[in-house]
Write a protein that binds this DNA or RNA. Structure first.
Length: 717
DNA sequence: AACACCGCGTTTTTT
DNA sequence: ACGCGGTGTT
């Protein structure tokens, strides 16, 4: 058989992983070493050479994007049909299992998925109903605690309440939250994993079935697995499946949301006779960039050890720019991008990366001034927008009347005279009966305990939903969405908002209808009614944040969202201690190491040109901060970096880039000053050196002004 | 029910 | 600085 198409493009180590005998594999794959390629080729090898049935293969990733990419690449590479092959996210696959075995899992057939926003609302509601002090127990912390328990496989009743008041309160809320989810047929994200894990433990026959079926489990980005995902994998693997995991401990950047790098080490103990393969040849970056990355990450202890190398020698040095402030930094970056564009290069081959979203603004302003198109990643995603969730809320109720999250959301949106009092009565009744809000509302209407007006309004809402369900029968998905949006009154509701806002709302609702028209259920949802499949899709796959992807524009994103991407020209901005590494990560060594890995991820995004920059002064949260250059800069070897515009007293790497503050005499930021023309003001900022030193003063009567210090004749007050 | 005001938090993000 | 959410006013 000709297997050359599976092996030709691979190096020796990659081949070792792709065509090795069956068994467990731990592939430590450095950045840019062809990790996804290896995974996809392994699948192709199993199917085409080893003649493994596609039904025996399960490939898992973390994001929908990665899953989609893997599926597409498989289909492209494979000659044999891939029907039956399961490729998906942990959550997607858990969801599929629960739909198939909802009875055994103790879920209603039409259970719905709630996103973190719905979850938070539910928790807020519970805190109020139980009159828990939200100051003492912030809802977000409660949410985190509940998810943390679930991610560690713990139900409320499994946890020892102990004698800590705080833990007890948390547990009480957790228990109530579980109760409400059960009664309304709702599952949050963590629930999908926990429930399907329990399903296997409690239904040995079912587990045996899947263990017999899936002889080959493959996992991408293995370093990102959390406790329940790892447990899930172990249970499914049993004693006989072959488990093939690919990951990079140096790119573990999600510890703060439960990912455990330790699983990489643990894997070798838990899965006997694991073949260890290291992919260290990098096909992305020049050697100067790689040398910088290697040197940086070498400062982390406890690594499994890996050194990237490349056949590409030399290349540009890594440029470091010391900016006066964030505006200077942005100007510098944009000027380099302008040069890049002037060379005829593509804008979308360049990326500005930063630690936190707030840093994007200054760059956006600078790009706008120069009319350079850009795209900022992150932000509200399509299916998370209020008008979209409202529209879907109506449809969710037609599918499952007990969906309390949807009920709460749309019962009085648009306003239809069902105020807080009325909804309060419904909640009270539901809690008393342990029923859903819908059932409680029905009961209240028939029992005549409500005054006429509220009762009519509530009854009107219930019949609206009933009628809606009736009217949706036999319509196709797009028409169903359109009908629901029109019947709900949401269009008129949003028309009352300011024109510009109403416009985007309209567009989004139109886009939702459009999404319905083009929706094609995946193979894994073929069993579901179309509407249910669409609702699950909306919850599990929230969609891109911004459109206009196809336009050629400068890419801007956080370092976290840059993982997995690559660009010829990369700017890593805000390299100051306190910004990056983030100040909240400075106290613990573990967190600092994760920040360093994040920096490593950032550096290894660059193919040819890498600029690192920091600002001596940066305005954040309305205050000025004067910070040291990031410690990460001093960890880079001198011979691969080049300082741009080196200035007097720039220290050598190793001592940090300590800069003397611009000399503004005896003035300091925040000082009150008086000016002969502008009157009294406060010093906000300063920049520049020597005679060009400028100072920014916010005057009470004239606003903020930049003044050249030597001409300003300011008087300190 | 719509609107104004006040106080708080503010790293990273996917499902 | 800024936006969001909760509270209070008309």
């Amino acid at each position: 058989m000709d297997v050359s198409h599976l092996l030709d493009a691979l190096n020796a180590e990659q081949r070792q992983a792709v065509c090795g005998e069956h068994g467990h594999y731990l592939v430590l794959a450095g950045a840019g070493s062809g990790k996804t390629r290896v995974l996809v080729h392994r699948i192709a090898w199993l199917l085409e050479v080893d003649r493994v049935s596609p039904f025996a293969v399960l490939a898992v990733t973390f994001t929908n994007k990665a899953a989609g990419e893997m599926r597409a690449r498989c289909e492209q590479l494979l000659d044999v049909p891939s029907r039956g092959l399961w490729v998906g996210t942990f959550h997607g696959i858990a969801h599929r299992l629960l739909r198939l075995h909802f009875r055994e899992a103790g879920l209603p057939e039409n259970f719905q998925i709630i996103d973190s926003d719905d979850q938070l609302r539910l928790i807020r509601r519970i805190l109020r109903d139980q009159s828990v002090d939200e100051g003492m127990f912030p809802p977000r912390q409660m949410q985190w605690a509940i998810n943390h328990h679930k991610e560690n496989g713990r139900r409320a009743e499994d946890v020892d309440p102990g004698d800590n008041r705080r833990d007890q309160q948390t547990l009480a809320v957790y228990a109530e939250y579980e109760r409400q989810c059960r009664r309304s047929g709702l599952a949050d994200f963590a629930e999908l994993l926990l429930r399907s894990h329990e399903l296997w433990l409690e239904q040995p026959a079912l587990l045996a079935h899947y263990q017999e079926r899936f002889r080959h489990l493959l996992v991408d980005e293995f370093q990102d697995t959390n406790t329940i995902q790892y447990a899930w994998l172990r249970v499914l693997a049993g004693d006989s499946a072959s488990v093939f995991v690919v990951g990079d401990d140096d790119q573990s950047i999600y510890g703060w949301r439960g990912a455990r790098v330790e699983h990489v080490q643990k894997f070798q103990q838990d899965f006997a006779n694991t073949h260890l393969v290291r992919l260290e040849q990098n096909y992305r970056s020049t050697s100067n960039i790689l040398t910088a990355a290697n040197a940086l990450i070498a400062n982390n202890p406890d690594r499994l050890g890996k050194n990237l190398w490349t056949e590409e020698t030399g290349g540009d040095k890594v440029k470091i720019y010391a900016a006066y402030n964030e505006h200077d930094e942005a100007e510098f970056v944009i000027a380099r991008i302008q040069e890049w564009l002037d060379e005829g290069q593509r804008a979308d081959d360049s990326a500005i990366l930063y630690r936190s979203h707030a840093q994007s603004r200054v760059f956006e302003e600078a790009l706008l001034r120069r009319d350079i198109p850009y795209r900022v990643y992150g932000g509200l995603r399509f299916y998370e927008r209020a008008e979209v969730k409202d529209s879907l809320g109506y449809l969710r109720l037609t599918v499952n009347r007990d969906d309390d999250a949807a009920f709460e959301r749309v019962v009085n949106t648009p306003t239809r005279g069902i105020g807080e009092r009325t909804v309060g009565m419904v909640r009270h009744q539901a809690n008393a009966d342990n029923s859903s809000l819908w059932q409680a509302a029905q009961k209240l209407i028939t029992s005549q305990t409500m005054n006429g007006r509220a009762r009519n309004a509530l009854a009107g809402f219930l019949s609206l939903i009933d009628a809606l369900e009736h009217d949706l029968v036999d319509k196709d998905l797009g028409d169903q969405l359109q009908f629901a949006i029109e019947a709900s009154g949401l269009i008129e509701h949003y028309e009352k908002e300011p024109a510009e806002k109403a416009q985007t709302r309209r567009e989004n609702m139109a886009e939702l209808i459009n999404a319905g028209r083009y929706f094609k259920p995946g193979e894994d949802q073929a069993e579901l009614p179309e509407l249910s499949a669409f609702l699950a899709h909306a919850a599990l796959e929230a969609g891109e944040g911004q459109a206009a992807q196809w336009e050629d524009c400068v890419q801007m994103m956080t370092l976290h969202s840059a993982k997995g991407l690559e660009f010829p020209l990369v700017f890593l901005a805000g390299l100051e201690d306190g910004v990056f590494p983030h100040e909240r990560s400075l106290e613990s060594s573990d967190r600092l190491q994760e920040e360093r890995r994040l920096c490593y991820v950032g550096i290894t995004r660059a193919r040819q040109h890498l600029y690192l920059s920091f600002a001596e002064t940066r305005r954040m949260h309305g205050r000025d901060h004067r910070r040291q250059a990031s410690r990460f800069l001093s960890e880079l070897p001198m011979d691969v970096v080049e300082e741009i515009r080196p200035r007097i007293a720039v220290s050598r790497p190793g001592l940090g880039y300590q800069q003397p503050a611009p000399d503004i005499g005896d003035l300091g930021l925040g000082d009150a000053v008086s000016h002969h023309r502008f009157g009294v003001g406060v010093v906000l900022d300063c920049e520049g050196m020597g005679p060009s030193t400028r100072i920014q003063v916010h005057f009470e009567d004239h606003g903020a002004k930049w003044l050249v210090l030597s001409h300003a004749s300011l008087e300190r007050l």
